[in-house]
Design a protein around this nucleic acid. Structure first.
Lengths: 249, 249
DNA sequence: AACGCGCATTGACCTGGATCAATTATCAGT
DNA sequence: ACTGATAATTGATCCAGGTCAATGCGCGTT
């Protein structure tokens, strides 16, 4: 696991990465964040063969929805996605945002059916992992199973944190927490923790945090007035991360 | 998997089950709901050996908390538990209630540390599964890994549903949904879907649903006035399940 | 450059559920 | 059976954040 200490810039050239659809796992800039971490190189080569590296999805396009038959889980390769669950009356909840190296669709394993849907927030691409094959491989690659469980557990843990946020935090705390969560994830991917793009709409943010769009908008202007952030359109800059951290509770 | 079709009463004698701490998995009344489902009998025998069948926990006693070193995941054997996450300022969120056959502690796998804590709601007992051993066994029992992933995924899926509840539902919808969720789980365990005990306090319910105790109390009295439920203390009876279902949204 | 459209902001007002406060049950321990 | 502590109910009031409405902005299209 020496790679973990060997932190290098992940995206020397984002545009280049976006077009290298058929790059092998071991050459992939996301390797450090991704499923194959810890696999032996011959196992990795096998895994490589079953991964379908998809063409890109454009803004708003669905990766899957609740009526898509379950076959695969996905890893974001470039861009970003949102997942939602919806009730029969049309209400929907944005359950998460997903960035490169993050997994989508793991909640479908149990029922062997997607009960949520996933949409691209911008021009994005994914690696598709056929679940049945993944299961087969698991029998001979215990390390792969460990990685999968670890991923599942990580998401579970994140969901508990979100439940706390939804159930107990104020609008101010929710938004501060959200911004710092994005920041941390961008940083993990070799981007700036301070300046980044909000690829999702205000509406998506509000929905995800259990707030109204207007509240998010007002809170953004307040954070700006107080010098915590600077915002133009979708570009945000966290100008006072320490104070933001204090607001999280 | 013929067992799935062979539904028999699970708890002929609850008191008896509670005291049979060392009953083997294949004799256990929870077998149908539990991890070993689908394992070959010699694998099962092996698994049996590593399971620690604990003495019982009394009301309020902690199964683990965030400072307990992570070693095991747990399956409820009898009774019930709640799990909570808490912030440094003392606020806490009840993230779930757990009944016989349900797993506790899976969100700790990723960080190899419990970030939540679990407390018994009544006199209860668990089966303790040492995680390291479970990993070892996984290498030779792919079916066990499948079961584990399936469990993790199930909880993930439930969490998404809860996020919707917390983010989008009204107090009325929250409570109706909660009661029916309990009802369904009791039914799965061979108990009445109509009459059961609320082993958790009103405070726990309120906290879990992102409400104030007073709101839960008022809603309970309203549901009673409208003839949807009948409540005395912790004993509840869902007298109009259909109408409750309509209230869920 | 003018148009159209969805997204975002801002203001005014309203309300579901929180908070505060006061009883009243429940129940565990002696 | 008594008793103190804790949990639950009920009522009165308040407010964070939702809803409604109007306007403004950015951006892709022709």
């Amino acid at each position: 696991m020496a790679q973990l200490n060997n932190v290098t810039p992940l995206f020397k050239d984002l545009a280049k990465v976006e077009h290298e659809h058929n790059i092998a796992c071991k050459e992939c800039s996301l390797y450090r964040l991704c499923l194959p971490l810890g696999l032996h190189s011959n196992d990795l080569a096998q895994l490589d063969k079953i991964i379908k590296r998809s063409q890109s999805y454009s803004r708003g396009q669905a990766l899957f929805s609740s009526d898509t038959p379950f076959k695969s889980i996905f890893v974001v390769r470039s861009g970003s996605f949102k997942t939602t669950v919806q009730a029969s009356d049309g209400r929907e909840q944005v359950t998460g945002f997903y960035f490169p190296g993050e997994f989508i669709g793991m909640d479908a394993i149990y029922e062997q059916a997607y009960k949520s849907s996933a949409k691209a927030l911008e021009s994005s691409s994914v690696c598709e992992l056929p679940f049945e094959k993944l299961q087969e491989f698991g029998a001979t690659m215990p390390q792969l199973q460990v990685q999968m469980m670890s991923r599942l557990s990580k998401e579970l843990s994140g969901d508990k944190t979100l439940m706390f946020l939804l159930g107990k935090k104020t609008a101010e705390e929710k938004l501060a927490t959200f911004l710092l969560s994005l920041s941390r994830r961008f940083q993990d991917r070799g981007f700036s923790a301070r300046d980044f793009q909000l690829t999702m709409s205000r509406g998506d943010i509000a929905n995800h945090l259990g707030l109204a769009v207007e509240t998010v908008s007002r809170m953004f202007t307040r954070f700006q007035d107080e010098g915590l952030i600077s915002l133009q359109g979708k570009a945000i800059s966290l100008t006072d991360q320490d104070k933001l951290k204090q607001l999280c509770g």
